[in-house]
Amino acid sequence: MSDLIVNRKEGLYCVPGDFYIDPWRPVSRAVITHAHSDHARIGNEHYLTAAAGVGVMKSRLGDISIEGLEYGEQRVHNGVTISLHPAGHVLGSAQVRMEYKGEVWVASGDYKVEADGTCAPFESVACHTFITESTFGLPIYRWQAQQSIFNDINQWWRNNAAQGRTSVLLSYSFGKAQRILHGLDASIGSIICHGAVEPLNHAYREAGIRLPATKMVSDVGDKNELRQAIVIAPPSASNSPWIKRFGDFSDAFASGWMQLRGARRRRGVDRGFVLSDHADWPGLMQAINATGASRIIVTHGSIPVMVRYLQQQGLQASGFDTEYGDEDETSATAVTTATTALAEPSTSKEGDHA
């Protein structure tokens, strides 16, 4: 049987089903894994996504024709049985399972395997062919348990508050910001969110996700309150006129790229917290092995490294070139530098001290 999914100029195309997965050019029917802008783009005639993500999709794309499918619910389209399963990436993120004439393919979108309380946890889905991301597909990337990172963030905030300095934590508005909010100790002080973050907080609360109380900076009249506060803002706010209102502040950036030497320096921030909504190297391998798939197709990220490693493990592995980006990206140079320093995947210990 010919491949169920092929790579076209519009995106990943399900041939018998006549639909696209996360297309990067407008199409008639799009199945969307999650609402990050590199996977969910405007202009498609009809969208299908996980029911949990419909609110965020509408908040980001506006008035669109969209249908929500509950996790595990099946839909048959042109003989292809489609179901969506949690990817653990952000609210409403999903893997797309497709079955046709006994052949099962799963397109993962973006995913992480550590549950975080702000979205449905990752679910392993058995398949014959697994399409995986590889954003952090190098063995140097090995995350600490997230509670350890949250403890560090809260202690940094607590120390700044004791010195009367505002804590400004830069993180991506959708997903990362809400995950950080979920882990904050609200007893330390007020939590202020940038205007790009607060509408997404509302979408998360509407979906039943617990977040601490937040406010906009315009709601704060007392400068002493600001000095005890933590501010959650997108990276674009760094060095902007908006951020200067906080006067004496300490800034930090939360991203998986903070594990790379020099990434914090390039960002020009006081602290870097290694926190990513993507799977690290062990997480990627865990997810791939759990599918039982004999064929792996690697997309956006460190494609050559992962393909080579998987082939060495006896799997049929290849890559798809896509136009997906990375909402966590600090610089392409950082990834290139890490790739040139790569040791053998089975023996590397670089991630332990990077």
Results as ranks from 00 to 15, higher is better:
R267Y: 01
E99F: 06
I131Y: 11
R29W: 10
R25T: 12
A94I: 07
K112R: 13
A52L: 08
L315A: 05
I66C: 15
N239I: 06
I131E: 02
V54F: 09
P16N: 02
G314V: 08
Y204D: 08
V104M: 02
Q144A: 11
W24C: 11
S59F: 09
V168K: 08
S171D: 10
R8N: 07
A354D: 13
A107Q: 09
A50I: 04
W257K: 02
D63T: 15
P121E: 07
N201C: 15
T49A: 11
Q144H: 09
R142D: 01
C127M: 13
V125C: 03
E327Y: 02
N239L: 10
R205K: 15
A186N: 14
V90R: 01
D3V: 03
T49H: 06
S65E: 15
T330H: 07
Q74P: 10
L170A: 09
Y13I: 08
V217D: 13
E327N: 10
Q259G: 01
R97P: 11
I288L: 10
G102C: 01
V231D: 04
S348P: 00
Q146V: 15
D326Q: 05
R245A: 13
L138S: 06
E133W: 05
G292K: 02
A177V: 12
A40G: 09
T166K: 11
M285K: 07
V305Y: 01
H300D: 14
R264A: 14
S108T: 14
R245W: 07
A343C: 05
K9G: 08
A233D: 04
G351N: 04
G55C: 12
I288P: 05
W105R: 00
S190W: 09
S302K: 04
G268M: 07
V76W: 05
T132C: 12
H39D: 07
E323Q: 13
S134K: 02
I192C: 02
T118L: 10
C193S: 02
S190A: 15
A338L: 03
Q228E: 13
A196L: 12
T333A: 12
N78Q: 12
S28N: 13
G53T: 11
G189L: 14
L181Q: 03
D22T: 09
S108R: 04
C127D: 11
L310K: 00
D185Y: 12
P235V: 12
S346N: 00
P241R: 11
H278Y: 15
G53D: 07
H202K: 14
V307S: 07
Y324T: 04
V125R: 00
N44V: 09
T340Y: 06
D110L: 05
I42E: 15
A203F: 00
E327L: 10
D248A: 06
Y100P: 00
G183P: 00
R29A: 14
A252D: 05
A94L: 08
R261P: 00
R271I: 07
A254M: 02
G164M: 02
G272Y: 03
A237D: 13
Y71F: 15
W242Y: 05
Y204K: 13
N151C: 12
F246T: 00
R264N: 13
H194Y: 11
S37K: 14
R41H: 08
R158S: 09
A207W: 06
G351V: 06
D270Y: 01
Y20V: 12
Q316I: 11
Q228F: 00
Y100T: 01
A87H: 05
S173R: 14
G175Y: 13
A213T: 05
H85Q: 10
V56H: 01
V54Q: 04
